[in-house]
Amino acid sequence: MRFASILLLAAVGGFLLWGSGDLPQRGDPESPASTGISTYYIQNAYHDSDTPNMVTAVLADYRGFDTFGEAVVVTAAALSCLVILLRRRRREDGSETGVFPDLDGDAPGGAA
């Protein structure tokens, strides 16, 4: 199992490196990413959004929806944590298997 995993990982790594051969060199100013849409951001960020920090401009304006999604992700995660952890306190049956005495002591399930 472990050996198979390592073999699989090696294959993944090799594949990624093989593909990275056609990625631009590090710091290449002529790379597609550096000449593409980012040019627009660099040239117009200040004009469009009055902020010198281009990252901020892109984050909060041009791609504001990603950031909105990001906020939603945080909400979803918070909600998930709430659902997962709070549920514990409502358990009434306090049942049998494998429940160790609670570490923080505030959950009645283990003791009951």
Partner: peptide, 29 residues
């Protein structure tokens, strides 16, 4: 702001900012 070669590409940094928060959220859950 005329010469784009003078500044680094802001877009990947934005992506990382977003992806990072997503990653944190997953870790939290």
């Amino acid at each position: 702001n005329e010469d784009p070669t003078l500044y680094m590409n802001p877009l990947p940094q934005v992506i990382v900012l977003t992806a990072l928060v997503v990653g944190v959220a997953i870790t939290a859950v």
